[in-house]
Design a protein around this nucleic acid. Structure first.
Lengths: 116, 116
DNA sequence: AGTCATACTTACCTGGAGGTGGGTACCGGT
DNA sequence: ACCGGTACCCACCTCCAGGTAAGTATGACT
């Protein structure tokens, strides 16, 4: 891990991931799908602060990137389900590390003070 | 990993991390500091696309969050060095996971096509 | 006297992620 | 006849992260 000298330009794997998951909501959506398939309405309820438009937008974008799959069971009260693909599962470590560091950081600022 | 039912609101560890590292450059800066201390000018050269203003801004913000430390050796051609704190090192797993997924994704779109 | 390098600061501007508020089509229940 | 729930689409707007271009103080070199 001795500071790979990858010159930072487009094509950089960090940039690649940030372009997909760097937004405000992508990781939160992934988190809700980590446990299995979810319906659109469920996601909306689980993420109270996201607007409908943006949720749709995120789901489309993640589906486009093949991180998740949209399944429309052509039923009569619409029923649509989203679930992670194998590729999407590969993103879970990012989620785990992100959440873990969030916890570490929260613990840190409780003991020693920071951001005064 | 059975979908911790953490209701997503402020206070969520994922949000905490995204607020700090969700930007366009934070992780790239951390990556350059992973190998040890760097001077301001080095960072600028290693990250050709970032503007000076934003680099300064990011460094300040990361220092404020106590992820890195600014050392001004009050010398006469100014010499300032930045290096990770112990807390900053704790963020490296996020970086590693992010980079790894970027590679996985790049490999994926080369075999099967995506984003047409 | 002029240029270069250091590590910044300041003022101004823009693009686009994200938010708001409405509308759509379908059906079941009351 | 009306309301509510499903899963969306559309037009419009706001705000700020990030970008651009200039200026600052110091000393060494030519």
């Amino acid at each position: 891990m001795t500071a790979t000298p990858l010159l930072i330009t487009p094509g950089c794997p960090i940039r690649t991931t940030l372009d997909m998951l760097g937004g405000k909501w992508s990781l939160l959506v992934l988190h809700q799908l980590a446990g299995g398939a979810r319906r659109f309405g469920e996601l909306r309820r689980l993420l109270p602060d996201i607007s409908e438009k943006v949720l749709v937008q995120q789901l489309k974008q993640l589906a486009n990137a093949e991180l998740l799959v949209r399944t429309n069971h052509g039923e009569v009260p619409p029923r649509v389900e989203y679930h992670l693909t194998a590729l999407g599962q590969q993103a879970l470590p990012v989620l785990a590390a992100t959440a873990e560091f969030g916890r570490v950081y929260a613990a840190h600022i409780q003991n020693g003070r920071a951001t005064p």
